[in-house]
Amino acid sequence: MFVLSLVVLLMWREPGHPLMSLWISGMNITLTDNGLLLVVRLLLKALISMTFSMFFLMTTRYAYLSTMIYRVFPSPIDQIFLMSYRFIFITLKMVNAMMRALKSRGGGLIKGMTRQSQMFAEVFALVFIRSYDRAERVNKAMEARGYSGKYIAATGIPRIGYVEYGFIMGILSIIAYQMLFHSLV
């Protein structure tokens, strides 16, 4: 959707055979065949990137991923990533607990629009305050073990096996073949 929102703006500027025209506030904008092709191409690229990213994330243990990020990304990006993962779980747990507590006393999300918005605001504010409080406590606990701003991710990552090497070589061969002989990319 994010890519689509950008492409929708770009597609009107592509030169080519016009398909349709629109008059908006005295301005004439034209959609061309190349514009439409650009939409399809960019959406497909985004889809492929997302699929590969999901495939990578869902088949890699987080501990390995965090070590890779620690090795590759500069500080503080790696530190933010390493810390945020656990906090996502903690925050979700906190929200769940709060929603359960709300429901246990007759609260819920079906009491009318005003009440619902108010409740969401209350939950959001509480989560923010409690997360801040918890972050303080976690920082204190980390300082007590010598933390001074640098967290080292030290999980050992297993070496790539022959099967994985074969898979990567196969994929690269297909890409090279497509690029050299079919120029589809």
Binding site: Y62, A63, S66, Y85, R86, R137, K140, A141, A153, T155
Partner: peptide, 11 residues
């Protein structure tokens, strides 16, 4: 819970 923040127990 506040003391544990790494992805694995070993870490």
């Amino acid at each position: 819970e506040d003391q544990l923040f790494a992805p694995t127990v070993l870490d």
